[in-house]
């Protein structure tokens, strides 16, 4: 009897074994390469206890870095929202020659390394740069100061809001907006009462992504900030600085704030997806 049952029993057991192995491998690799590195940050930051952690995070230079990083995000995100809505509107609602080229140009910052962006800015606004002599003559400081950090961050984050809003605008079509116009609404009324409510969740998620990227930006900012302690150091640069000062505990303490931010992004994404579904 067992001889007869064996072939039939073999097949389901084999087909259960392979999935289990694959799931096991996927979970193990994800733990090793994704989850543990993130958990490790908290483990190191709190290794010496709460007091050491709060001392590290409340050091004047780190506090200033947090302030500067927030300031940059507060300037960049609203500008990116305005650009994102305008660009999505023009691409989704109108057909014109060069529309595809415009879309490619908008997405180009995604394929350019932030370091290259930083170098471009240095060659534009630097002392030997294209606009350097003019800026020097008029005593305008862009590089190694807040404006430079803001501009590079705007470059790096520019496609974020547009990319979330555009697919939604295209999927929804313009019937509602046209109906509102026919009923006599003005352009701004259509935008405020019809377009904005329709895209608000995508807009919010795009803004979260843009903000997170602005706060976490490292390469581009490191080129143009000049790394002046307590002045032009953003939080990611401060992490680098503390690391090279061999203040690893301080470095990890500063990193926890950015890790929490990453968790906010993940939660935002999960909520967005459940709304779409």
């Amino acid at each position: 009897m067992s001889v007869v049952a064996a072939p039939g029993a073999m097949a389901p057991r084999e087909s259960r074994l392979v999935p289990r192995l694959l799931i096991g491998a996927a979970v193990a690799l994800s733990m090793i390469f994704v989850v543990v590195p993130m958990a490790f940050i908290f483990s190191r930051a709190f290794a010496a206890g709460w007091q050491a952690f709060s001392q590290n995070i409340l050091s004047p230079d780190t506090l200033h870095a947090i302030y500067l990083t927030m300031l940059v995000a507060v300037i960049v995100v609203p500008l990116n929202i305005a650009f994102g809505i305008a660009a999505a509107w023009v691409v989704a609602r109108f057909s014109f020659p060069g529309r595809k080229t415009l879309l490619t140009l908008i997405e180009i910052p995604f394929s350019i390394s932030p370091i290259i962006a930083g170098i471009c800015y240095l060659l534009l606004y630097g002392r030997q740069g294209l606009l350097g002599p003019y800026l020097l003559a008029n005593d305008v400081q862009i590089l190694f100061a807040l404006p430079g950090i803001v501009l590079v961050t705007m470059f790096v984050t520019s496609p974020f809001v547009m990319r979330e809003v555009l697919p939604l605008m295209q999927a929804q079509g313009s019937e509602q907006e046209q109906a509102a116009l026919t009923l006599g609404a003005s352009g701004w009324q259509v935008f405020r009462r019809v377009t904005l409510p329709n895209i608000r969740w995508a807009l919010l998620y795009g803004a979260i992504l843009c903000g997170a990227r602005a706060i976490g930006e490292f390469g581009g900012v490191s080129v143009v900030s000049g790394n002046i302690r307590g002045q032009t150091n953003t939080l990611p640069l401060q992490i680098d600085l503390l690391f090279h000062d061999l203040n690893v505990a301080g470095s990890f303490a500063a990193a926890t704030t950015l890790t929490l931010l990453a968790l906010v992004v993940l939660i935002g994404k999960t909520i967005m997806e459940s709304r779409r579904a």
Partner: peptide
């Protein structure tokens, strides 16, 4: 989602 400097650290 994780800033690259944090990942590197």
């Amino acid at each position: 989602a994780l800033p690259t400097a944090v990942a590197g650290l």
